[in-house]
Write a protein that binds this DNA or RNA. Sequence first.
DNA 1: GATGAATGAGAGTTCATTCAT
DNA 2: CATGAATGAACTCTCATTCAT
Lengths: 193, 193, 193, 193
Amino acid sequence: MAGTVKPRRRQARGQRRMAQLLDAAEEVFAADGFHAATTNAIAVTAGVSPGTLYQFFPNKESMATELADRYVAALAAAHAPDALVAGVPLDDVIDRMVDPAIRIAGEHRAFEAMFRAQPCDQLRAAVTGNVDRTIAARVPALDPSRRRLIATVTVRIFDALLPAILAASGRARAELTGELKRVLRAYLLDVSD
Amino acid sequence: MAGTVKPRRRQARGQRRMAQLLDAAEEVFAADGFHAATTNAIAVTAGVSPGTLYQFFPNKESMATELADRYVAALAAAHAPDALVAGVPLDDVIDRMVDPAIRIAGEHRAFEAMFRAQPCDQLRAAVTGNVDRTIAARVPALDPSRRRLIATVTVRIFDALLPAILAASGRARAELTGELKRVLRAYLLDVSD
Amino acid sequence: MAGTVKPRRRQARGQRRMAQLLDAAEEVFAADGFHAATTNAIAVTAGVSPGTLYQFFPNKESMATELADRYVAALAAAHAPDALVAGVPLDDVIDRMVDPAIRIAGEHRAFEAMFRAQPCDQLRAAVTGNVDRTIAARVPALDPSRRRLIATVTVRIFDALLPAILAASGRARAELTGELKRVLRAYLLDVSD
Amino acid sequence: MAGTVKPRRRQARGQRRMAQLLDAAEEVFAADGFHAATTNAIAVTAGVSPGTLYQFFPNKESMATELADRYVAALAAAHAPDALVAGVPLDDVIDRMVDPAIRIAGEHRAFEAMFRAQPCDQLRAAVTGNVDRTIAARVPALDPSRRRLIATVTVRIFDALLPAILAASGRARAELTGELKRVLRAYLLDVSD
DNA sequence: GATGAATGAGAGTTCATTCAT
DNA sequence: CATGAATGAACTCTCATTCAT
């Protein structure tokens, strides 16, 4: 009995530490970028020693990877893919894709940095997958490889404008967001023909 | 006469070294990115000692800046802005903007890295300026601040797809280039209304 | 109880290292002077890697500063300012000021170097303060700014003869020390009028 | 004829270059101190290339040495040792020694730096010799080795207060100069007994 | 003589990672 | 688990001096 309980407690504490460390990593990655970020700075921010950090993560990259996982999960939760299929107008689909993505990127300070960092391909891949599936649902006839290409391009466009959007606020942010949607709509209408 | 030749001879060696060093920097920046690139690696690649590098460039940044200047010049030479004005179809304009840019980016291995590096804003600024002027010539009625926004977005889209294009070759590169042009055409047509 | 001991154990090793490093710094500063001294030499002398040095001191200057603090403390301990006030003859006061200072400078090999180095103004300031207070105690009527001037001059005289005294030994050192005291006595008698 | 004239011209040009370089060295030594001063900085200040500098001076030290020679000569010229002997009051002697020394130190910006720099012992030695001879003239009965000691101490006191005097101006400088003279008079009166 | 390019060892400092405790 | 001391290679940049021209 005790044998089964103890490990759980440990795991719980471990989970807490990991979350704590990831929060710290998020902050530091957001502030300095992946490369300039220092594991020592992350440890300090988390209020632990560098050694502790390496008890939970084998290296700096792995922290980025796990952070990216967080963001993938958050995106998955936000993009409840209900009813993206049939008669929903393209504008609405774009809204339902773009707005939550921007929101999540805004909430998670390191989203942007992780989106670019090489060790976080998963994040880009996940987003691309989302878009790919959405297109598949709306335009089933499309050739899969062409669909993949379009999805990739779409995500890159999003990526290209995201930093500017996040850096802006108020009117400017709205303007830039509008422009992003305009690009996507124009492009996606064009390729739907 | 001799008075004008003599100093030239000295400068000539220096100019050669500078070019040599910039070539080396280009190679190393392209391979490792601006941050990861080391001045020692550049010096070794150029076949000189680190001290020599610092005889011509005050620091690492300045090499990036000068490289970016090179690219700006190359772009300026390529974008002879003749006849972009009146009756030229949009497709042609896009071709004449995109193709040389991709060609130059392909010829200069560090173009992409410099396009992203902070100390090289000039490069992005120059390209954005080019686009802005082109739009101004074609759609004189457009509000300048809106025009600037469109130019910025256009360049960011180019930036977003450039790495993929450069990484690809043959059929894949042609496909991606086509997609880039499609995006731009769709967007620019949309905003011209 | 254990709670107070455990952290101490960790700090203990660190404290030992700091002392070790300061000892090494003292040796190297004494041998080469502050500017010529290298952090690597200090690390080697201390038998640690350069990185370890920077775990305890943020930079070279800080080592000098801490060394100077050591000396200030040693001086404060030596100059028990008892009975410097009333009827003590000037010669005795000078003995009680100069002798411990010379002894401490002799014991701490870098004293002289630190006395001169810019990042160690504290040391000179501390010594000047000591002298200033002593004068204040003996000649309360003296104008404070004039007193400060006299203290400064006194310390500079000490500083001027210290290297010669430390470099000498035996009879020569005694002679020079006597000369220093003679200068100080003559000067202080003169200004007491 | 030409054979004798040409070399003279050359020597003349060489002398000019040397003076030019020494002027530059003076400026740079005064600004940065001997150690921090850079031969390149000196060459730039002199408006020549580093190679030229090494055509006239074998190394950095030698520039300091020659500068010190300049100062020795200036001092020798200033201290016309007339009538320092017999009935001149001590105060006057001190004035005639200290005032020109301070004036020259003020006129030659690197005087102070050279006075301290190790490669310039000659300067200190020359000044000490002056003082020694003056004492010898005034107190012929004094034991030579004791005289030497007193001269050394005297010069060190001068050295100790010189920086403060040069850094000050107006009233403060006058005050400090007065204090220096007071110290010297008190000391020399004391040792004359 | 004069130039300025070239050298290269070495400066102070950083940081991802490991390890004894 | 947690600590924080320890590592050491690598970084950018400097500078007295030399050498080809």
